[in-house]
């Protein structure tokens, strides 16, 4: 009994150490993050002083410093969100590729869909208004086109419907 208890205790202690070790390794990033890891985050940030240049491709000295900063933060175990947060705090929201959806910035995301939906609605309403019941024009489907530009060339009844349509379409082009 005693032995079993002791074994359990050892096992527990070993487990805790192991877990702690595992947690420690999981927490501490590799000592020097690779260029790719740095660039992945830098790509999502914009150079605060150049015009519309993502940080990963910006060739200036200042940008190199910022990439080094990201590298350092990564090696200290910062998460991507923390790094972004830091950059926003330091250099303003302009470093983000998109404005955060808060306050006035909501408009960025809300206005275009609203305008597009309104446009779609208007177009649909207008088209519905233009559609005439087919019965009204079915009697003379070919001569009812506007400006008298229909089939008025006086040809024989077309043998092949598709050819006829094609001919008609090609011909109406003046």
């Amino acid at each position: 009994m005693n032995r079993i208890l002791r074994f359990a205790l050892y096992a527990l202690a070993f487990g805790i150490v192991l877990a702690g070790f595992w947690a420690a390794t999981a927490h501490a990033q590799s000592p020097t993050p690779t260029d790719d890891e740095v660039n992945r985050i830098a790509h999502q940030l914009y150079c605060p002083v150049c015009e519309n240049t993502p940080l990963d491709v910006c060739p200036t000295e200042a940008c190199r410093q910022w990439r080094d900063l990201i590298r350092q933060q990564l090696s200290e175990g910062w998460t991507e969100a923390q790094i972004k947060q830091y950059f926003v705090q330091q250099y303003g929201v302009r470093v983000l590729a998109e404005p955060p959806a808060s306050g006035l910035n909501w408009l960025v995301y809300v206005l275009p869909p609203l305008i597009i939906l309104a446009g779609a609605f208007l177009l649909f309403r207008a088209m519905r208004g233009w559609i005439k019941p087919p019965a009204a024009s079915a009697l003379s489907p070919l001569s009812s086109s506007p400006n008298g530009r229909g089939m008025s060339e006086g040809e024989d009844a077309p043998k092949d419907e598709y050819v006829a349509r094609l001919e008609e379409e090609l011909k109406k082009r003046k």
């Binding site: 305008i115 446009g119 208007l122 177009l123 309403r125 207008a126 208004g129």
Partner: peptide, 10 residues
């Protein structure tokens, strides 16, 4: 925006 007016073509 300008489409607004299209609904009333007459």
């Amino acid at each position: 925006m300008n489409e607004t007016a299209k609904a009333a073509p007459r």
